[in-house]
């Protein structure tokens, strides 16, 4: 049977401006393929993936909620921030505006999400400004070191990736996962208390569900 064994279940959200490639990143992660012409996401879509963190010898199940970047869905997508343990904040390296808007998105995430949330800034579409001038190439508008500097200021992780080539996509998730695992080790996420992190006994009998007591929140 689906003998899935994992040590942790982590909830991730992917957010950022419309058309920066959030859905493509997720599909690249889960299906190892590139969506060449995706439709805009309506509301939220779900995808999941098991990854292994070798040095911790931990198997982690990522539950990713890919949110819509379009303004009209803002209020809906906000509902997902609170429950997440990790966040991929995506911008497009060939669009300065999307990088500038990342500030707004970050503010939004900070306002609604768990304070311990790990956020990684992902500059997507680096394949478009690769050195060898292919057709459809677009100039880079956000220098890597500028983004890196801003990420450091805000305490974010940072990586540049390409959903098309697959470069750094899994790495981005792995990097964020490591950070979360590290936080767990330091006791910042109390397993029972954060909705975004769930400890699961490996290869547990699927008949028993974790009985996690949930706390009431008033927001």
């Amino acid at each position: 049977m689906a003998g899935v064994a994992w040590h942790y279940v982590l909830k991730f959200i992917i957010t950022g401006d419309a058309a920066v490639g959030k859905s493509s990143l997720l599909v690249r992660l889960t299906d190892q393929r590139f969506l060449s012409n995706p439709d805009p996401t309506l509301g939220v879509e779900f995808g999941s993936k098991l990854i292994t963190i070798p040095e911790e010898s931990k198997v982690v199940k990522l539950q990713c909620w890919d949110t819509a970047g379009t303004e009209s869905f803002r209020s809906i997508t906000r509902s997902y921030y609170r429950g997440a343990a990790g966040c991929l904040l995506v911008y497009d390296v060939t669009s300065r505006q999307s990088f500038l808007n990342a500030r707004t998105w970050l503010a939004d995430v900070r306002a609604h999400a768990d304070p311990n949330l790990t956020c990684i800034l992902v500059g997507n579409k680096i394949d478009l400004c690769a050195e060898d001038g292919q057709p459809g190439r677009r100039p880079r508008e956000v220098p890597a070191d500028e983004a890196d500097r801003w990420a450091k200021e805000e305490g974010l992780l940072f990586v540049e990736a390409s959903a098309k080539s697959g470069e750094n996509v899994e790495a981005a998730f792995v990097q964020a996962t490591r950070d979360i695992l590290d936080k767990i080790k330091r006791g910042m996420f109390d397993n029972d208390r954060s909705p975004g992190v769930k400890l699961s006994r490996p290869s547990n009998n699927t008949l028993t569900l974790e009985d996690d007591s949930t706390r009431t929140r008033c927001c």
């Binding site: 909830k11 509301g43 939220v44 779900f46 909620w65 809906i76 997902y80 429950g83 909705p195």
Partner: peptide, 8 residues
């Protein structure tokens, strides 16, 4: 439906 699924 999706939000509730997300919330467990």
């Amino acid at each position: 439906q999706k939000i509730l699924a997300f919330e467990g």
